[in-house]
């Protein structure tokens, strides 16, 4: 282990992300969430047709965008891991999967709450609902594989993530032929105060995404550093 290759050494000794910058952004994004909630309730006017329940939209849509961002990170990380087989890409892929599941869960919770009022049902088998659900379920499967599969879990999880991303396109297309009731993309048609609230909320979510991503990658690096230390301890016979 003392003869470790230069790459391994440098990975081990890399600083674990700059603490102060990360903390600043974390605090900032916390404050922005408070401000965003304030804007949602007091700045943006109440929508004429749907009324109060429309306010879910300001958090629902940014969550959905963040979910796709997470899926993008997961796709890039997983493909790169399958090609390069370095732990760094595996950690990026895993972080992307986790963030996509997190924001996907927010989408899948906030959506039905709105749907109950607007459609009269918590769930309808619409294109985006169904494809989001299947996507999130497949990514949850990735996490389960990672947890249960044992030694080869990383490879299998990365492979499954690639399938999940391609598959969501198929599900989207299939349900689209079948039926569709999701409201069309309406950001461009919003009243100014609504637009301001929406974009502020989107910015808040975007920063939150990158804060969480950085944190998750940091945790991942710490985890593998810990694993390496443990391995070294075992090899030197100091461990039980």
């Amino acid at each position: 282990m003392s003869q470790a290759s230069p790459q391994v050494r440098s990975d081990e000794e890399r600083p674990l992300g700059s603490g102060p910058v990360l903390s600043t952004f974390a605090v900032l994004v916390g404050l922005m969430f408070v401000a965003a909630a304030y804007m949602v309730f007091f700045h943006a006017p109440t929508e004429k047709v749907m009324g109060f329940v429309q306010k879910i939209f300001y958090f629902h849509v940014p969550s959905a965008w963040n979910m796709f961002l997470g899926v993008g990170v997961a796709a890039v990380g997983s493909v790169m891991y399958l090609v390069k087989r370095t732990d760094k890409w595996d950690r990026i892929g895993d972080a992307g999967v986790e963030l996509a599941v997190l924001f996907g869960a927010m989408v899948l919770i906030s959506g039905p709450l709105w749907g109950r009022k607007a459609w009269g049902a918590f769930w309808v088998w619409d294109v985006r609902l169904t494809s989001s659900l299947v996507l999130v379920l497949t990514l949850v499967a990735c996490k389960m594989v990672r947890g249960y599969a044992g030694a080869e879990a990383k490879k299998i999880a990365a492979g499954l993530a690639v399938f999940a991303v391609i598959n969501s396109a198929f599900v989207y297309y299939s349900v689209d032929i079948w039926r569709g009731t999701h409201p069309p993309k309406l950001v461009a048609t919003l009243a100014p105060a609504m637009k301001q609230t929406f974009w502020f909320s989107t910015l808040t979510f975007l920063i939150a995404f990158f804060v969480l991503l950085t944190l998750r990658l940091r945790t991942g690096r710490l985890q593998s550093a810990l694993d390496r230390l443990h391995l070294r301890l075992t090899e030197s016979g100091l461990d039980d």
Binding site: T138, A141, G150, E152, G159, L160, A164, F170, Y173
Partner: peptide
């Protein structure tokens, strides 16, 4: 095939396969 050497492969096979096979 990918689960060949994995733990709890019987559980994982259906969990991986069914959502992908939905289309």
């Amino acid at each position: 095939a990918s689960l060949l050497r994995a733990r709890s492969k019987d559980i994982l096979l259906t969990i991986m396969l069914f959502p992908i096979i939905l289309p």
